[in-house]
């Protein structure tokens, strides 16, 4: 147990340099994007010299870039994320976006794990059968598809032609809920984007589970277990699955990162008011504080998902802790 604890501490300490490097990259890129003072000035008429000085002081543009980075980082760590260049404080804008993004990402992740691992096992156990051929073909189509395009196709079919499901946003306007109920309305809005995201993550998880299971089933210890008369289902679920599942768990963190990175495309397609859609809108009008905040939040989420999966991996596979 002590080794697990020291592994946890080491893993978290290791995340710090990664976080700092990512913050430097984000800060430098957003600074190259433009000077916030100039962007604010575009929106103001007859700006007074005193106002200009105030703006320069507020954004620290009178300081060299590395000093500005430390101002920015210390503000970021203290939760003081400043104001949007357009309206509102970043914190109040970002909080609901985080929630709507997670409302889509976490159910999709859980669903694709719950469905993908059994399908992958079944497919590996019945290699070269018709079911296996169907699963592998569907899965490779799934990983070759732009996520948003599947969304557009479903919108054309289910929203524009059949009029079954809404294609826009996360909720209807109050008083116009579908089915007269906020829960039904939310689920109706969630259905299409959730299906798209689940399908795409599912494809990756099925492929990985199947490949790992096939490799494990070929190993000597499985042959030994079979030879000593252990039942086939026990060999599959007690002996092989435990060894095949650990790499799948590690990739969950990675695929969560990929799914979050793909959020701009998917969320824009469904006008889903989450971090990805907000990022596209903010990048369009160069709202630098919002862009920085969203990039850092997504990075922190991906880092956290990676740490959690690494810890799960260490818990499941004692060899990693050393």
């Amino acid at each position: 147990m002590a080794s697990l604890l020291s592994y946890v501490v080491r893993r978290i300490l290791f995340a710090i340099p990664v976080f700092i490097t990512v913050s430097v990259i984000t800060f430098l890129i957003t600074n190259a994007a433009g000077n916030p003072v100039d962007i604010v000035r575009l929106g103001l008429r007859n700006i007074q010299p005193s106002q200009l000085l105030y703006l320069q002081h507020y954004f620290h543009t009178d300081q060299p870039v590395y000093i500005r980075y430390f101002f920015w980082l210390s503000d970021l760590l203290q939760g003081n994320w400043g104001n949007s260049l357009y309206s509102g404080t970043v914190t109040s804008l970002v909080a609901p976006w985080i929630w709507t993004t997670l409302e889509l990402q976490i159910p999709a992740l859980l669903l694709s794990l719950a469905v993908g691992i059994p399908i992958g096992i079944y497919s590996a156990k019945h290699q070269y059968s018709k079911a296996d051929a169907t699963v592998t073909t569907t899965a490779i189509f799934g990983v070759s598809m732009p996520t948003f395009w599947l969304g557009v196709m479903l919108i054309i079919l289910f929203s524009l032609n059949l009029h079954w499901l809404p294609s826009y946003g996360a909720l209807s306007i109050e008083g116009y809920y579908i089915g007269g109920n906020i829960v039904i309305d939310g689920l109706a809005h969630l259905a299409l984007p959730l299906f798209v995201l689940t399908f795409v993550s599912l494809a990756a998880i099925v492929r990985l589970t199947r490949a790992n299971m096939l490799e494990t089933l070929r190993q000597d210890f499985v042959l030994a277990a079979r030879a000593s008369g252990v039942s086939e289902s026990r060999v599959t679920y007690r002996h092989a699955l435990k060894n095949a599942i650990t790499p799948v768990i590690t990739v969950v963190g990675l695929s969560f990162g990929v799914a979050l990175g793909g959020a701009p495309g998917l969320e824009t397609t469904f006008s889903w008011p989450g971090l990805g859609y907000a990022f596209v809108l903010a990048a369009g009008k160069l709202d630098l504080p919002v862009i920085q905040a969203i990039t850092m939040i997504i990075t922190i989420m991906v880092l956290a998902a990676n740490i959690i999966t690494d810890l799960a991996y260490a818990y499941l596979d004692p060899r990693v802790r050393l």
Binding site: G261, A283, I291
Partner: peptide, 14 residues
């Protein structure tokens, strides 16, 4: 390590 956690698509968009 950094590139594995960097939301690369978002950075490329920027």
């Amino acid at each position: 390590q950094v590139f594995f956690v960097l939301p690369i698509l978002i950075i490329i968009l920027l």
